[in-house]
Amino acid sequence: MLVTWKYHPRNSLLEKLDPRARWFFSFLVLFSIIQFWDVRFLCFFFALVMTQYALARLTWAETRRVWTFILIMVIGIVALNTLFTGRGGTTEVLSGGHIIWRVEWNVLGLSIHPTITVERVWFAFSQIVRMISISTLFLIIPFTMDPRLYGVTFRGMGIPDRFAFSMDLAFRFVPTLARDFSTTLDAQRARGYELDKLEGGVVAQIRKMAPLVVPVTMNAILSGEDITNAMDLRCFGLRPRTWVHKLSYVRRDYILIAAGVVILISSIVLKMAFHVGDFWMPAWALTWAR
């Protein structure tokens, strides 16, 4: 069992950008997206994040699993929301509307009547566009950001030295701990432990995970004492740290951050000053009503 990061150099434009600029841009766009329920504006953001996705040079094989996960989650949640609870973040879809389908079910003596209206369907569509846009905005990060740069990136974004170093250290520990896990799994299998054939109820099955979880965790804790002593002997934390990798902004990074700021300010102005961006539905959609 070999643990590998999803990142590998792809020579893409995104990799040439400073990771801090990319984080800032992503969060600025995120807070811009959540200003809108109007699908016309959401389509702009959808196009923007898809452009970013295209620039990442990812293959379908690499991202197929995550796309499946996102689509199942988004469609499942939106279906539940649309069918049974009816509305979301906007009041326009709260009640009434033009009915497409309505049924009355009797479940355990309780009368429930799922209703689908044109407004709810259009709202669900807007929700799907918005949720996929937000997911795609951050989906590319594990594939396009070098794990060696996370510590220095978060330090550069203002996180205290010790917290940033702890994050950096966590990324470095992963291969070692994955190897320890693999060794422990092999040792337990040699003793007759069958991970694939855990039997019993939920409680029994979880309890039977202990022969794997406990030795790996305790072994890691014991080795942690040695690492702590070694760091203390080297006077860790007495002065601000220096980092092996150095990050510096260049013109394209400033342009990216400025673009994010402009998008966010424009979104807020459109929403607050011009009152646009709330839920919108085309008139022709009403023809769906029965």
């Binding site: 643990v3 702890s166 994050m167 992963v174 965790t217 934390g237």
Partner: peptide, 23 residues
């Protein structure tokens, strides 16, 4: 407190959680 010991164990905890989640 967030001294050297906490820095190391936070990293170990995070790496373990990440590896177990991945597994």
């Amino acid at each position: 407190e967030f001294g050297t010991r906490e820095v190391v164990y936070a990293a170990i905890g995070a790496a373990l959680y990440g590896v177990f989640s991945w597994v």
